[in-house]
Design a binder for these strands. Structure first.
Lengths: 190, 190
DNA sequence: CCCTACCTACCGACCGGTAGGTAGGGCAAC
DNA sequence: GTTGCCCTACCTACCGGTCGGTAGGTAGGG
């Protein structure tokens, strides 16, 4: 969907139906022929984005091609590349979780991601319990890791300005991924 | 400033001058008697927020009451409590660095924070060079740590929904701080 | 007497949404 | 094969409401 770019670039309030309609080459009234309201457009965009993400993540999680640390590395790498390839998604999610404190839409991102979160917590609990990973609070670990990773992609502009180079360039991204993996590995190694 | 709450809660586009004026008990026209435009109000709010932060951070950095890991722990703790006590600030900064990719204002948050960033990079370089910390890329380390910490406070609603408890409650915050400190410590210990 | 702070009243622009009209493709009846 | 019909997709034109900003007036204190 083209509208995803608008909402993720300008936010819900900053995007007018005219912007979206112009982006796909029709008029506002024609856009409202396909969606009953602006909120419905946003909802469709957001659910589609979440669903795209879910497909990719499920694929990486379900496939047990590795175990122990290699499995964690595989999932983290998949997530990182997904974020790198879908910057709009990252910004959309960021905006949504910022706006969620008010109302905006009935969305509860936490509720949507909770199953995966629980799955990850259970995984770490099991692995830590069997001594394959160093003991941590899995909830804290996942939240901090998620924050560190998501932040890199939602603050691309800021980091670019800090470092003076494009953090999404291929070599920079690869170096950062290795850094994140090393960080997790250091924390998880028994 | 009261307006900070509006901008951080609703964003620039989502905040009208009427909202701000009503919040301080005057009319919009009276607000525009003190500021030439809405952008000027926002600019004042943002610069004031940055300046508040700068004061607190400078204070924590300049005072060499500790060294080695204790110094890092002191600075991290200061930052965390500042964020916890100023949720508006966190959300404002988050919104700004999301919006910065377009235009919105001439703000360059990266430029504003670069001196501190460089200072921190130099500090870690020195300490790592002298073997007091394990070797890492200091830039990556700082960016990841900043991301993990900032994320916790900008996604309070999301984390609340994930965990089912308030992440800003005193005990939860303290537990999280200990987790973050442990994480950094594990990464930095030689 | 003027200056500051505040007010009401207004402006043009743009917003989301609706009403109503039209061009054209698919399809059944003749 | 032609005719008539309907449905989908799109359009222009308009609505009430809100936006940021301005003009001009007033009350009150130094």
């Amino acid at each position: 969907m083209e509208a995803r770019r608008c909402f993720s670039d300008e936010g819900y309030d900053g995007t007018s139906l005219n912007d979206i309609a112009a982006g796909v080459g029709i008029r506002r009234a024609s856009l409202l022929h396909h969606f009953p309201s602006k909120e419905a457009v946003y909802q469709a965009v957001f659910e589609r984005a979440l669903s795209d993400w879910a497909i990719r993540i499920e694929d990486a999680i379900e496939r047990p091609t590795a175990e122990g640390w290699d499995y964690v590395e595989q999932v983290l790498t998949t997530v990182v590349y997904w974020f790198a390839e879908n910057p709009d998604f990252v910004r959309l999610v960021r905006r949504e979780s910022l706006a969620a404190a008010n109302d905006h839409l009935g969305f509860d991102l936490g509720e949507a991601l909770r199953p995966w979160f629980q799955q990850a917590v259970n995984y770490f609990d099991r692995e830590m319990g069997e001594g394959r990973f160093r003991k941590h609070d899995p909830e804290q670990l996942i939240i901090s890791g998620y924050g560190a990773i998501l932040n890199y992609f939602s603050e691309v502009h800021f980091i670019h300005s800090l470092l003076g180079r494009d953090p999404l360039a291929e070599d920079a991204l690869e170096a950062w991924l290795q850094h994140i993996l090393a960080w997790f590995r250091t924390a998880l190694e028994p």
